[in-house]
Simulated scan of single mutants.
Amino acid sequence: MSVDSLNWKILKCLQENARMSNVEIGKRVGISSPAVSERIKKMEDAEIIQGYTTLVSPFELGYQLKALITIRAFMGMLKPFLEKVKTYDEVLNCYRITGNENIVMEVVLKNQKHLESFIDQLITYGESKTQIVLSHVVKHSEVKPLK
């Protein structure tokens, strides 16, 4: 599916606020609400729009730490880890990456003791490195048209 400039404007609106009404989007981009709805449906069908989500603050829910943890999996442990990681409640995002490490995860934890316990679970799969996140510099930046 081709994404024209009008579709990009619609995507920009939805990335700013996924709950924005089709009427409001239509006003902003200059087309009718039914035309917005049709374009959104086509982008959903083409998997350009892959879903809608609610952003939740882990800190407001009692988590004190956010960390990035990389894993360099031991020989034969990568595939078992890729299955196990899906069961960890602490993991917000997990990426398989290139380089010296195989995995990078974004995790939330209650405190230092929770971090220690979580790392103890990981060490059976490989060598881990942990970086504590101090702040977000760029947060959920929108996808923009290629130049």
Rank of each mutant, 00 (worst) to 15 (best):
49 I>C: 10
50 Q>N: 02
53 T>R: 12
54 T>F: 10
54 T>V: 11
55 L>Y: 07
55 L>S: 13
59 F>N: 05
59 F>P: 00
60 E>I: 00
61 L>R: 14
62 G>S: 06
62 G>C: 05
63 Y>M: 15
64 Q>A: 13
67 A>L: 07
67 A>F: 02
68 L>D: 09
68 L>G: 08
68 L>E: 13
70 T>I: 05
74 F>E: 06
75 M>V: 14
77 M>L: 13
79 K>M: 05
79 K>I: 06
81 F>V: 03
83 E>N: 11
83 E>W: 04
84 K>F: 07
86 K>A: 14
86 K>N: 09
88 Y>S: 03
90 E>Y: 03
95 Y>W: 10
96 R>W: 00
97 I>P: 11
98 T>V: 04
98 T>W: 10
99 G>R: 09
100 N>V: 03
101 E>F: 14
103 I>R: 05
105 M>G: 01
106 E>N: 11
106 E>A: 09
110 K>F: 15
110 K>E: 10
111 N>V: 12
112 Q>C: 04
115 L>V: 06
115 L>S: 06
117 S>A: 12
118 F>T: 02
121 Q>P: 00
123 I>W: 06
126 G>P: 12
126 G>M: 11
127 E>W: 02
129 K>M: 02
129 K>L: 03
131 Q>A: 14
132 I>Q: 09
133 V>L: 15
133 V>W: 03
133 V>M: 12
133 V>R: 05
134 L>Y: 01
137 V>C: 01
138 V>S: 12
140 H>M: 08
142 E>C: 06
143 V>K: 13
144 K>Q: 04
145 P>Q: 02
146 L>W: 00
